[in-house]
Amino acid sequence: MIKRRKYAEALFKVLGLSSLALAVGTLALLFGALVVHGIGRLDWQFLTSFPSRHASQAGILPAVVGSTLVMLVTACAGIPVGVAAGIYLEEYAKRTWFTELIEVTVTNLAGVPSIIFGLLALGLFVYMLGLGASILTAGLTLALLILPVVIVTTREAIRAVPVHIREAAFALGATRWQTVADHVLPYSAAGILTGIILALSRAIGETAPIVTVGALTFVAFLPPAPITSQPPYLSFEWLMSPFTVMPIQMFAWVSRPGEDFAANAAAAGLLLVGMTLTMNGLAIYVRYRMRKRVFW
């Protein structure tokens, strides 16, 4: 009897480990499939070429540039707003129904499917505000999408700063903002950074909302350069430019029949997965380092 129970336990351990192995194995299989299909295409020509009807001549350059510029907009809009909202909720907000409301909407937004953000952007940015299917629209859409992640991680990081540090600053006559800016934020910067990296890594792989706002799937040009040769040397024309991004380019290639385009898709996927995994790895590393280095 006892033997049988022990047996069941051992069996379960095997089952548990194999479940986890299945999850981990899937990740390996996915990565392996991308490598096998795509590594051959992932060369300098691929990175520096425009899309083409001939799979072997096609490249991902406009998508890489597009992703970079969209991320720039997302970061500039999403990070300050998200961090500021996190600071407000954690350091300023009083416990009222109004604060509750803000918190409920943040939780809710975190669970809204990304394609719904795409519909919002289509109705609001593209048509109501007349921004069109531009880099600006895509960047702002993704900024809204990552807002909950940035807010939640900012709050968690800020909450880890002990109360007695705040009290020490207040007792010296610091204002609330001085306390936040001189102490709370610097001491929680690593945690906030982790959240920002994770949020951007999510944004860079997002496809559905970008499809919805009308990103192009075949872009044979680059947006206007942000730096010009004439004064004032800075141009923001690129904000309104049509664009594509890496996941859209991959989607376009996956949707085309034929081995060759599948290989292009795999190469694009390899690039995407490489980027998101690198960013996530970085975030995990920062978090790990942070846990080791606690001040108080």
Partner: peptide
């Protein structure tokens, strides 16, 4: 964290 479009390919 793997982008969903990559899962689509998969």
């Amino acid at each position: 964290a793997v982008p969903t479009v990559v899962y689509g390919y998969f």
